[in-house]
Design a protein around this nucleic acid. Structure first.
Lengths: 210, 210
DNA sequence: TGCGATTGGTAACATTAGTTACAAAGCTTA
DNA sequence: TAAGCTTTGTAACTAATGTTACCAATCGCA
């Protein structure tokens, strides 16, 4: 854990802060698909992601989902931070996209470290900054792009996150993430296959050239 | 200015911080329609809004716009904050929706006050929190609602922001904000009029019952 | 091996939103 | 007041997306 922590955050945080994190943080190892946080639940701690990817999504009143963005090594969840501080419920759901390891920081430390460590403050601000930009990007995608472009972006991002040319998703799962319907996604995927961008298989999609 | 500042921020900030703000802040009085910030421009200072409303919007590569949210008394622009700190260009455009008064804080003070004043830290965090939530709300609206619902929400919000039962916009202007076309908006507005929710006039819309 | 469940392909159709085109109504100003 | 601009209304059409329905392929497992 210590080596992993230094590997991901060593250049960001000073030695002293790293040591504090080691002291109070709890190491967690979660399998792909594990639900780290749900809408309406209260937040107990703040996660620092060491490895793997976390999928952050939104749900509307009818239970329809929408993928917001992914968190990666070195990221944390800004939503969590604000929830911690404001003692409000979570507005989003977070699910491990791949197997992931992370360190949970007790929320009381948040406030203390924010006044004590400049590097922590910068990290928190930068994190907010990144999340806001990702939200902007998602919004752009929905507001300005057609579904075929969104699907293309989705496939690219998923391949990047999983570091693989093979996307292990069913059409239905993709439809959920993009808040569309299975039939529409199948249709557009078939179009991409005909263009030679991908190759379709049962339960996975092979990326040829995006 | 001093009275206005205490009125809007007196309960948030301690006396000492208020005094510092008075010392280093510049008072600004801008007319409705004034462009406070544009996409791609660098940010010189951080605004604290004293009165009026600021419209924050996004633009895509083709110049198509989309309204993100409004800022009101007591708000600041989180985008600005992150831009200041990261020295990156603005991702959004900000335009005074009504006549507005605000105080510009030199960006150097940001960093100093963040370590010096707990109330400032809380303000900054809370501000991020609010903006993230507004972004989520906008995203919900675009992803999960049809245009008629979005239009309804738009009219409600605009009436709230301007504190008026009369919305002084042309159909074309509304179409820009919602990233739609004039014909579509006219169509839906007419439907709302037939339902008795609004009354249409040239250059303004009267709200009957939303 | 065979049955049921899951997954994907496709057609036909419905709905929503965007586009083009044009006319009428209402301001503005020469 | 006539000419010209802006704004709004509306029809007809196109495009994109969503829905329903049904079948075929594949998989897991009894």
């Amino acid at each position: 854990m210590i080596q992993e922590l230094k590997n991901s955050y060593g250049s960001l945080f000073e030695e002293e802060l790293i040591n504090e994190i080691i002291q109070v943080g709890t190491y967690k190892d979660v399998p792909a698909g594990f639900k780290l946080m749900d809408i309406g639940s209260y937040v107990k701690g703040m996660p620092l992601l060491l490895s793997g990817a976390i999928k952050v999504l939104r749900e509307d009143k009818d239970g329809d989902e929408l993928l917001l963005y992914y968190l990666e090594k070195g990221d944390t969840c800004s939503m969590t931070m604000t929830c911690c501080m404001g003692q409000t419920k979570s507005e989003i759901r977070a699910i491990a996209e791949t197997d992931a390891t992370l360190i949970m920081i007790p929320i009381q430390k948040m406030e203390i470290w924010t006044s004590k460590y400049k590097s922590w403050r910068n990290f928190v601000f930068e994190s907010y900054h990144n999340r806001l930009n990702e939200m902007l990007h998602t919004l752009d995608s929905i507001a300005f792009n057609n579904m075929d472009q969104r699907l293309l972006d989705y496939l690219k991002e998923k391949a990047r996150i999983t570091k693989s040319k093979v996307i292990e998703s069913t059409h239905q799962e993709i439809a959920y993430d993009l808040h569309s319907s299975r039939v529409v996604i199948s249709r557009l995927l078939k179009k991409l296959e005909n263009l030679g961008n991908i190759k379709l298989h049962r339960n996975y999609i092979e990326i040829i050239n995006l």
